[in-house]
Computed example of a mutant assay.
Amino acid sequence: MNDLREVAIVGVGQTDFGALYANRDAQRDQYALGAEALRLAIADSGLAKSDIDGLLTARIQYEHGGHVLGLGNVRVINGLEGSGRMSGVAIQQATALIATGQADVVACVYGNNGRSVQMKYGGGYTASPTSVYDSLYGMTSPGAYVSMMYQRYRHLYGVPDGALAPLAINNRQNAALNPVAVMREQITAKQYLASRFIAEPLRLYDYCIINDGGVAIILTTMDRAKDLPHRPVRIAGTASAADVSNYYTSPSFFYDASQKVAKDLYTQTGLKPKDVDVTQIYDNFTPTILFSLEGFNYAPQGQAWEWASLDRIGRHGTSPINTAGGHTGESYMQGWAHHVEAVVQLRGEAGERQVRDANVAQYICASPITTSHILIGE
Rank of each mutant, 00 (worst) to 15 (best):
Q268D: 07
S258C: 05
L55H: 02
R315V: 08
E378T: 10
I187M: 09
L193C: 06
L271P: 00
M139H: 08
Y62T: 11
V146H: 02
I218M: 07
T188N: 10
D51W: 00
Q268K: 14
N113D: 14
L40Y: 03
H230P: 05
H339D: 03
I374H: 00
R234H: 02
T288C: 13
L80H: 05
G88H: 02
A165Y: 06
V74H: 09
S367Q: 09
P251L: 13
A37C: 07
E6Q: 14
G213Q: 03
V344G: 06
T220C: 15
Q61I: 04
M139P: 03
I209R: 05
S83R: 11
P166M: 07
D243T: 02
K260F: 05
I91T: 10
L167Y: 06
Q61D: 15
A96N: 10
T126W: 11
T221H: 05
G143W: 02
L20V: 06
G162E: 09
I218N: 08
V146Y: 13
R5Q: 14
Q280E: 15
V7M: 06
E6P: 03
G329Y: 09
R24D: 09
R356H: 13
A358P: 08
T288F: 07
T370R: 01
F296R: 00
H327W: 06
G65H: 03
A8T: 04
D243W: 00
G111K: 12
S367C: 14
D275S: 10
A189I: 05
A48M: 12
L202A: 07
M333E: 12
Y205H: 15
H373V: 09
T318R: 12
Q30W: 06
D275W: 01
T371Y: 00
A242I: 06
I235M: 15
A262Y: 00
I289L: 14
Q259P: 02
F285A: 10
T140C: 10
G377H: 02
V12P: 06
H327P: 00
R196K: 13
L47N: 11
A48W: 04
S250L: 10
A361S: 13
G317W: 11
A37W: 07
A194R: 14
W305Y: 15
S258G: 11
V159A: 05
C365S: 14
L228G: 08
T57F: 00
A262H: 01
I364M: 11
A366P: 00
Y247I: 03
R224I: 01
R234T: 04
L38M: 08
Q280V: 02
T269N: 00
N284T: 09
T323A: 09
